[in-house]
């Protein structure tokens, strides 16, 4: 893969084919964990690791797995890595385990991972599959970070727990609550669409 190709792929994953904003995959964890920067970033990194590892393994075993059990074996591989990440987080970052809770094991059913396994890793050699996992994971993680920073600033007036507006800022708690998650994500998707459409018209 040349540098130019990688760059194109990166733009594709981050913007034009962003898994959350354009493909609308993995909405559950996107909406649920983005209450603050720490949670959003933690979930983003965990998902990226699982996505990259499962893409690698699935691409390695792709020639041995017969059609009938393809999905079943993908699910085994994916849930294996998810469990591994879950155990590691619980042992070394217990705070993150507490705040993400059930959404760590639920990475298994994050459609992004199965979608990339099925659409890319099962048809391509290991190296491109790893790159694909990394890029798509980055697209997911960056969206989570943007969403959680916006919600944390408006909801609590902080970034990563640091107060930025001074003690008297009360924050619109609604944005940090479930209802705010839907509304913020809706507005972000609309904004991305607006700019993507605009840039397409130019070309």
């Amino acid at each position: 893969m040349t540098k130019g190709e990688f760059k194109l792929k990166l733009i594709d994953g981050l913007l034009l084919n962003n898994p959350v904003l354009v493909q609308l995959l993995g909405m559950c964890s996107t909406l649920a964990v983005t209450t603050n920067l720490f949670n959003g970033l933690g979930m983003g990194i965990a998902t990226t690791i699982v996505l990259t590892m499962s893409n690698l393994i699935i691409s390695l075993i792709r020639k041995f797995v017969p059609k009938q059990i393809r999905i079943a074996s993908f699910i085994v591989v994916i849930s294996g890595f998810v469990t591994a990440i879950e155990l590691l987080i619980r042992a070394y970052v217990p705070v993150l385990d507490k705040s993400l809770g059930i959404f760590i094991p639920l990475i298994v059913v994050n459609c992004i991972i199965l979608a990339r396994a099925e659409a890319f890793a099962s048809k391509n050699p290991p190296l491109p599959s790893v790159v694909d996992g990394l890029v798509m994971g980055l697209g997911f993680a960056s969206t989570l970070v943007v969403l959680s920073v916006i919600r944390e600033i408006i909801g609590y007036g902080t970034i990563g727990g640091l107060n930025i507006f001074g003690e008297n800022f009360k924050g619109a708690t609604l944005i940090a609550m479930p209802a705010g998650a839907f509304i913020t994500l809706g507005i972000i998707i609309a904004t991305t669409r607006y700019f993507v459409n605009k840039s397409k018209q130019k070309c």
């Binding site: 075993i61 041995f64 797995v65 017969p66 009938q68 059990i69 079943a72 074996s73 085994v76 591989v77």
Partner: peptide
Amino acid sequence: YTVIVLTVI
């Protein structure tokens, strides 16, 4: 064959 593959994985 499918059984063996799934078992190995």
